[in-house]
Amino acid sequence: MQKAQFHQGVSPYLFVAPQVLIILVFFIWPAGQAIYQSFLLEDAFGLHSEFVGFLNYRDIFSDPEYLDTAVFTLLFAATVTFFSLTIALLLAVQANSVIRGAGSYKTLLMWAYAIAPPAAGLMGNLMFSPLIGDFYALINASGIDFNHHQNGSDAIFVIVLIAVWKQISINFIFFLSGLQGISNSVTEAARIDCPSTIKRFWTITFPLLAPTTFFLLVINTTYAFFDTFGIIDVTTRGGPGASTNTLIYKVYKDGFLGADLGSSSAQSVILMFLVLALTVFQFRFIEKKVHY
């Protein structure tokens, strides 16, 4: 090894600098700010703040509404992740076996990925709108009393639907490329070894897709926790009542609408650790079962 390689002056640091700067400005600094703010109590006009230690955290954990929100968020994330993964997998398996017109199927299924979450939320909101929504008319015409502005479970249904629909396309792309990565001869060997298509899927295809599935599980969990904000904000605003309030939406509501920056910051810190813990859990316990 020649040590001379490492005497390159400042240029390597300059190359890395933009990336480091972005991380510092947009991730580390705000995270630090959030942690700092979470120990402060500020008056409603933002004129005065005082250090209160863990008071904000204590308040949050003793607030039954926060607990409800946390439980709802976990269930919401689990539901969205589960359905967006399974439906995408189903579609990918079907598209993979299509021989004629495969290209157009794939393109059509990928389109939804280009739509921003708020736009998807807006579309969903209009479709289910009591004033002009076709789906609203359809569901009510079939005898079910449906109104996502008034009924909590209806509202949950709508945001889950939109969130799942929005995420299916990206999952589909990954699953499809995962499926196409499985060697043809392995699939053929399985056709000779196993008569049942369904069993073949679970014993050969699914295990070989595990790396993709695991990656998507992590991505979809964070999506359900954070990126669904846009959908909720446009569709239900956490309502009716607090029925579709997720943790991230509550952070926004309490901080920017309720002007309680201290509590909002504390909540975002908790959320950060929650998602971190979930991700660590996924890597520790689920990744072990993945064969790369």
Partner: peptide, 9 residues
């Protein structure tokens, strides 16, 4: 098979 086609997992 030519490339053996063993189940890698």
């Amino acid at each position: 098979f030519q490339n053996y086609a063993l189940y890698p997992h």
